[in-house]
């Protein structure tokens, strides 16, 4: 696994991915990214900034400059706990929390989210469970998380597990919606709509390229 604090390294302009900021800004309300004045209020407000490899302000600057690899490989995006403290303080009304979520999505899509890192594993496992059953069962989710990251943690948490069991707070019964088919139909329809939108965008890009040449 990568170290939390990596050594600074040189980056040449030619290596930067200038499509990256445009792609990220295509999220709903994403254009606001270009309005950032780098004031650092987000980093100052963030209760987790001290644990991050790049502060939220830096992540925004690096995204705009095209540091795609560094941004998508960063721990910062996975440390965001979605408390929205930065988003409500931002003088340029940038939805920083949603922007972090967008970067998490891109990291997962590109397969560069840190492996065996509990935060992204939890997100993936949660997604799978809800995709299948329409509901999540906390106890099962946590056990799966430990199994996939660090099985020894089950021992570490055994005492807490026992206490929860004794107070009737721990049940392995898998919760599920009755109409699973409906969940499936809805989520498939989203996939289909995304595919259509992607093809449309591709067609638009090609037309633009052709018009230029």
């Amino acid at each position: 696994m990568k170290e939390w604090q990596s050594w600074p390294r040189f980056r040449y302009e030619a290596e930067l991915d200038l499509r990256f900021p445009e792609e990220v800004a295509s999220m709903p309300g994403g254009r606001a990214l270009f309005a950032c004045i780098q004031c650092g209020t987000c980093s100052g407000t963030c209760p987790l900034a001290m644990y991050m490899d790049y502060s939220p302000r830096k992540i925004i600057a690096m995204t705009r400059a095209g540091f795609k690899d560094e941004v998508l490989h960063s721990f910062t995006i996975w440390l965001c706990a979605s408390c929205y403290a930065c988003a409500v303080e931002c003088p340029r009304k940038i939805k920083i929390t949603d922007f972090m979520a967008e970067l998490k999505q891109r990291a997962i899509q590109e397969g560069v989210d840190p492996k065996r890192f509990p935060v992204s594993v939890l997100a993936r496992e949660f997604f799978k469970a809800v995709r299948k059953r329409g509901r999540s069962t906390e106890s099962r989710l946590v056990l799966r998380l430990y199994a996939k990251t660090n099985p020894l943690k089950i021992l570490d948490q055994a005492l807490l597990g026992l206490k929860l069991l004794r107070t009737g707070r721990f049940s392995l019964h898998a919760e599920s919606v009755k109409n699973r088919q409906q969940i499936d139909q809805i989520l498939r329809a989203v996939d289909a709509a995304k595919a259509t939108a992607f093809v449309d965008k591709l067609a638009r890009d090609v037309r633009r390229e052709v018009a230029h040449t």
């Binding site: 949603d98 999505q105 997962i108 997100a123 997604f127």
Partner: peptide
């Protein structure tokens, strides 16, 4: 929840 947004917001 918050976790789903991290995988697929839509």
């Amino acid at each position: 929840a918050t976790a789903y947004m991290a995988v697929d917001e839509m």
